[in-house]
């Protein structure tokens, strides 16, 4: 029986198809930017969900750090660590899409692949910070230590995101005014909203799979079988 997160994931894919169809063919083209503006229907949902993922990582990090010794001893706290690993990786993947989409949008619009647009630059810095979290997890073997260290680094990195945005905004605004799409026609809001939920549901589906993978890898590392710690963290997402 596929877990409920996988069902949500499939629902997300279906919604995504509808959203893309609507965004590509049904919604009217933007008066000034023309068709290129249609990139927004995948770009903005990815942006929102990247932030959602990293926010869940923050919650997972706090969950692990605040879990008492008893919760950890009985293995109930592992679900926070699995969630952190899952949402951080998904956030990094979505963030990578964002950067690529942003560059493909920038080339026809401003003639260069990379403008120091505060939003896109913040995404790039955020990507680097959370890739570093994943790299750190790769270099620490002991599960408890890895969980605590990555939770601490996630906390420090997350607090930095607004700071990066405002400092880059100040720093970049000296050169060119920030561009944003013209007034959003109601017919354009629909595909945007559909895809926002589509990507969210897909993320939830991915989380279900990725947390399970994280648990299996940890158990394989610890050489334990399907022990009581899984009972408590069944459907993780």
């Amino acid at each position: 029986m596929p877990r409920k997160t996988t069902i949500i994931g499939i629902l997300g894919i279906l919604l995504y198809i509808v959203g893309c169809y609507d965004g590509l063919l049904v919604a009217p083209a933007d008066r000034f930017m023309g068709d290129i503006q249609r990139i927004m229907y995948v770009h903005v949902p990815c942006a929102w969900n990247t932030l959602v993922c990293f926010t869940i990582s923050l919650v997972a990090a706090l969950g692990w750090l605040l879990s008492g010794a008893r919760a950890r001893a009985e293995g109930r706290a592992w679900k926070w660590d699995e969630l952190l690993e899952a949402t951080t990786e998904i956030g990094v993947v979505l963030g990578a899409f964002l950067v690529v989409q942003g560059m493909l949008w920038a080339k026809p619009t401003w003639g260069v692949y990379w403008t120091w647009d505060p939003r896109l630059t913040t995404v790039a810095v955020m990507e680097l910070m959370f890739v570093a979290v994943l790299a750190l997890r790769g270099f620490v073997d002991e599960p408890v230590r890895r969980a605590t260290w990555s939770a601490v680094v996630t906390l420090v990195a997350y607090v930095n995101v607004p700071l990066v945005y405002f400092s880059v905004k100040w720093w970049a605004s000296l050169h060119q005014v920030q561009s944003s799409p013209s007034t959003v026609d109601p017919a354009m809001v629909l595909p945007l909203r559909i895809n926002a939920f589509a990507v969210l549901f897909m993320s939830i589906g991915l989380m279900g799979l990725r947390t399970q993978l994280a648990r299996r890898q940890r158990q394989a590392l610890l050489g334990e079988s399907d022990s009581d710690s899984t009972a408590s963290s069944g459907g993780a997402a």
């Binding site: 933007d30 000034f32 930017m33 023309g34 068709d35 249609r38 026809p108």
Partner: peptide, 10 residues
């Protein structure tokens, strides 16, 4: 649309 022909980028 003013900037025609960018549909392939999309």
């Amino acid at each position: 649309g003013v900037m025609q022909g960018h549909f392939d980028t999309v």
